[in-house]
Write a protein that binds this DNA or RNA. Structure first.
Lengths: 200, 200
DNA sequence: ATCTATCATGAACCATAGTTCACCTTGATG
DNA sequence: CATCAAGGTGAACTATGGTTCATGATAGAT
């Protein structure tokens, strides 16, 4: 009753030092494993990679789904940061919105190639992500980029954030770099503003 | 030694009538199951749907992979037919190449939505498809469409069959119809011939 | 230094899903 | 219609992989 350290009544005691350390190790290792072998890697694999026993994984994450979700969450956070940075650059007049958006898309495609699995995992998990905050951050930033591009007259006026999501979700993750570059080249024209070819 | 019915020495006797019937039932049912639930449906499920026992599946297909491959093969054959029909139409002057190609893409996207799983399965299976013939047929037909469209001046001159494959392989299968339509609208501009927007 | 709640360990457990096989059924042949 | 090999059946086997839990170790407080 004389404990003074907790922020609220429902707060647990402070976690032990090595627990924190392990949690981090697990998250990193799991991320790496998932990146390379896909979200179907066994818990044993990930545990081994992290240098701990399976039981430890379960101490930190009640279920495999939760672990993967945590990894995805980290990934999402990075993406959100990236998007916000791009938007900030545009706001500072350091880059044209369309270019930034394209570059951003490129980076994501790049990454989701590396993190092929994170993508698959994200789809598998679907709604069960828990922290929708980062998703919203990313969405808002992209919306900002789109709007700026439309003001510039570079981006089609009917393009929305959902379109970007749509494209995202179909980005080729497991194809060689050349293919991904080509894909981006094929897809971007759909975003840019220009007159349609003469009808019939 | 007095058997006369076989075409070659390594030919097996003729299959029994009900065997043929069952094979067809299995293929149909498996197709339907996979279409609805994805390639992860259990063998039991598919067997039940076909109205036979698991063992029967294994009599016809040595392994689950083979069964799924057979389903995929059927799907591929349909796609090939479709592509060739489209090409024929263009050759007869009944349709413009770009339009036919777009419509074809639309149909495939439409189907691979229905057959969401077939797609997933195809990727999972990768090379182990066995009958590459249909793949070639489809490829040739699409190549024909592309070329015709380029002659018309409707399709970008640098577009190749591989680009179509690339787009295909990223088609959104599990999204609602509206999203798929939108996707097609976003993607097609990348194929059409028109001047790029002014640089900087 | 001692003590204990937190944490880590990993062999064992269990559920799922592909696969097998000993035993029946049945279509075709004479 | 008698025969029998091809075909069908489904309970049982097996491999895989997520999950648990009794036991041992350790950080941190006294």
């Amino acid at each position: 009753m004389t404990q003074a350290a907790d922020t609220s009544m429902t707060q647990a005691k402070a976690p032990r030092a090595d627990a924190v350390r392990n949690r981090k190790k697990i998250l990193t290792a799991a991320g790496k494993q998932i990146t390379v072998y896909g979200p179907d890697v066994g818990m044993d694999e990930m545990a081994a990679a992290a240098g701990v026993a399976v039981g430890t994984l379960y101490r930190h994450f009640p279920t495999k789904t939760d672990l993967v979700a945590a990894v995805v969450a980290e990934y999402l956070a990075r993406v959100a940061d990236d998007a916000e940075a791009a938007l900030a650059r545009v706001a500072d007049g350091e880059g044209r919105a369309l270019d930034e958006l394209t570059a951003f898309l490129g980076r994501v495609v790049e990454q989701s190639a590396t993190d092929r699995a994170v993508k698959a995992a994200a789809q598998t998990l679907g709604a069960a992500l828990g922290n929708r905050a980062d998703e919203d951050r990313a969405g808002a930033a992209v919306a900002g980029l789109i709007h700026a591009g439309q003001v510039d007259g570079d981006i089609r006026t009917d393009v929305t954030v959902n379109d970007i999501y749509l494209l995202f979700s179909t980005a080729p993750a497991d194809l060689p770099p050349a293919a991904r570059t080509r894909w981006l080249a094929l897809v971007t024209p759909g975003l840019t503003a220009q007159s349609r070819p003469a009808e019939s």
